[in-house]
Design a binder for these strands. Structure first.
Lengths: 143, 143
DNA sequence: CGCATATGCTGAGCATACGCACTATGTGCT
DNA sequence: AGCACATAGTGCGTATGCTCAGCATATGCG
């Protein structure tokens, strides 16, 4: 007797967990005008030694170039980053955090850190290592 | 010495794994004109004993009511589902799969099943149980 | 019955994410 | 120099997901 609507419960739970975790963090970041996507971009800009090209930002952040444009547009609209023409390559922009962007990033980073600590509070070091190993074995099969 | 750009590697890996898994499945479903979101809706319609109201569909599928409207719009445009006025409640619609929708669902379900089996091939029953337990402990903290 | 309130669905608008195609520019080869 | 080709960024279009507002309809209470 085949079960109808055969779905992979494990994968459903993976989706569900990630979704809820993301909503959990988004809700806290929203109060400060940030978001997971915006924080990710700001984090890359804050930790890079120099202003980044759009291209480099997108690659480091693990998002498509087109998505980086949208995110930087939104951050720029809010005065958190600046686009400056690349002095040597006139096709490119260099993106850097403004002072307000730096402040926003620090606040968002702290909120993120607390939220993730809260969400993963029930996992000790062994649990984390185990979870990472299991996730890694899925990633290896989704090339 | 605080590490700069302190991000939770574990959570990053969770995001990354889920993202890649989803892309992996989406890529295979796309060839048949399906997608994870569309399959989810079709699955709920196929396993329900009766046509569903938009509201019920959204709740069972775990998506917002407004999102259900968009998904059903797209499925209806492609002739995979039909909206029929609810005979007792004139505010509501009943949504049901068409014959083509049934065929599409069966194909998509099979593709999904194979893709998920492939992606989780490296995990045995114990691994799966362990992963589910770990994910559950994160979910419990993201209410 | 009539009115307040709740519910069902969707329009409008936003955020995140993608691909494709295009323009502008850089680069390398003859 | 001149042409072919590659690269950088973004306009346009799409998909998935949300909230809020609004309209139509149901329902419950006096």
């Amino acid at each position: 007797m085949a079960v109808q609507g055969s779905s992979d419960i494990l994968v459903d739970e993976l989706y569900e967990t990630t979704y809820r975790l993301r909503q959990f963090v988004e809700a806290r970041l929203r109060e400060k005008g940030a978001s997971v996507a915006r924080l990710r971009a700001m984090r890359m800009l804050a930790s890079a030694p120099k202003p980044l090209r759009m291209r480099d930002l997108s690659e480091i952040a693990g998002i498509a170039a087109r998505t980086a444009t949208t995110i930087v547009d939104s951050l720029e609209r809010d005065g958190l980053v600046e686009r400056v023409r690349h002095p040597q390559d006139r096709r490119a922009f260099l993106v850097r955090l403004t002072d307000e962007g730096l402040r926003c990033h620090r606040e968002a980073e702290e909120i993120d850190r607390l939220a993730l600590a809260e969400a993963t509070a029930a996992l000790n070091a062994d649990d984390r290592a185990q979870l990472r190993a299991l996730l890694g074995r899925i990633r290896d099969h989704t090339a």
